[in-house]
Design a protein around this nucleic acid. Structure first.
Lengths: 175, 175
DNA sequence: GATGTTCTGTTGACCTGTCAACTACAATGG
DNA sequence: CCATTGTAGTTGACAGGTCAACAGAACATC
């Protein structure tokens, strides 16, 4: 059993690398999520959305911008934002110049929540990821992983991305 | 904006590493999934389950074993297996020695499908992941990622794992 | 302008997975 | 031998997301 026949290189170190990549990701993300939910009642997705808003001008973004950044569909974002509006972290604001768009704007409460949650989140990243490496190793990792599709200005951008500055997942706290 | 204040090390290379890790994973998994669905009508999860069965003795495993390996809940596995049974790739077999357990067993059709899909899948991994690195770099990656929680005999094993040999995600083809 | 096309956001129907409750069986201990 | 406790699997209700279809607004072009 296993891995030969077809795959030229999917053996030994290659297999280990791929396995490590998949498994570690599953474990880490799962735990980060559990942490955030337990301590702040937020999903990692919620957190991500709040963070994008916090980083945006006037702390607001059109729904479609959120949809691009999070890689959710527009309907997905509609529903996610619905939830955050119900919790009082976001409010909807209609756009004056284009009646089609409606902004999601971070409320003061949402901003506070985000800051609190940020501590937990960053501590989790530190504990589950960063703490396992030296500074040099982190540089190596950054260099290697940066080559992969999706990283650093990736492949999947379907529509006009207007935010080259964005931190589609990695940037982790506000202020 | 960004990252300071709280996080000691979440800057520069650390941030890049973390970002690259998250984003590349999202992109690669998404594309692998799309490939597999388009060419074979299988989810990556489906594929994973079929593969575990193919690697097991008699090509069968108790539901709970599948649940542990896939990191799905037992009910999740019940439903996933339901689907594969409907498609004729798996059959349910009750255990003689313990009437509580029911095995999921790979059918001949399922095994064939798995082999076909394996080609697509491995080609995808090669294209999206392996091809970006040299052999040496893959060794480095394996070494680094192997330290993370979840990789190589991880943290999350709730109950008695009986399969130290298992390839909880990485092993990618049969035979 | 009237018209056709494109874009934004929402909704309905559905899929996938979780959680909690339940059934059925096994194991343990008095 | 029976009572308790634990384990395997399924089910109902729901959360979270997708897809397809839509309405309303903006743009393009004649």
């Amino acid at each position: 059993m296993a891995v030969s026949t077809i795959s030229s290189r999917l053996d030994g170190a290659a297999l280990e690398a791929w396995r490590g990549y998949l498994q570690s990701h599953a474990g880490i993300v799962r735990e980060l999520d559990a942490d955030l939910i337990a301590h702040h009642g937020l999903t990692v997705r919620d957190y991500e959305v709040l963070l994008y808003l916090a980083q945006a001008d006037e702390r607001q973004l059109p729904m479609s911008a959120l949809s691009e950044r999070t890689m959710l569909t527009r309907s997905g974002i509609t529903r996610l934002v619905d939830g955050l509006v119900d919790q009082g972290m976001i409010e909807r604001v209609s756009c004056e110049r284009d009646a089609r768009v409606s902004y999601a704007r971070l409320t003061a409460a949402g901003y506070g929540k985000l800051r609190d949650a940020g501590r937990t989140h960053v501590a989790g990243i530190e504990r589950l990821f960063l703490s396992h490496f030296t500074a040099t190793e982190l540089e190596q990792l950054a260099q290697l992983l940066g080559r992969l599709p999706g990283a650093t200005g990736g492949v999947q951008c379907t529509a006009g991305d207007e935010a080259p500055t964005a931190a589609p997942n990695g940037d982790c706290t506000v202020d």
